[in-house]
Amino acid sequence: MNIFRLLGDLSHLLAIIILLLKIWRTRSCAGVSGKSQILFALVFTTRYLDLFTNFISMYNSAMKLIYLVCSYATVFLMYFKFKATYDSNHDTFRMEFLVVPVGGLAFLVNHDFTPLEILWTFSIYLEAVAILPQLFMISKTGEAETITSHYLFALGSYRALYIVNWVFRFYTEGFFDLIAIVAGCVQTILYCDFFYLYITKVLKGKQLTLPA
């Protein structure tokens, strides 16, 4: 464990908590893409199947559990409890356009052709593109609530910090996982446009609006 990975995990946890609290306290999931949340729940499910078979540390197991519980709780709130506030008209990105190619790629490019490893690879590739429905929804509505933009900033920062962690681990341990690194770079690049808007607008107290 290094400070960059710890900060990355805490940023990820912060994002998940921000979103869950936003939905719970405002009793509304307006402006939030349910499809991205379903994809994130799928990412954690396929990545943490080894939760009970491969013990790394208390921290690792606790975080995996928290991520799983919070992601399913968010999906539950969006599609059941506060379903009436779910903006399905703007959340129209076709999830199958992501899941099918990512599933095929996981079969072709992986470290080890075993079920667990292919599912882990699937979760890495899927996480890279899981935010697309959310970014697509914001581009359609042309704006995002400030709390949602804080969620996205924390979520985008987590994988950016992981890239720093991978550089650090490469130089200190000689460890690198090309699949995670390439997917992590793609994932972070997808946020660049949003990062620019967040820094130039939200941090100056303005509403996050996309040029129509």
């Binding site: 470290h111 080890d112 667990l116 882990w120």
Partner: peptide, 10 residues
């Protein structure tokens, strides 16, 4: 290389 399979990152 089995160290890849033992994914210690979240």
């Amino acid at each position: 290389n089995d160290n890849d399979n033992d994914h210690d990152e979240l």
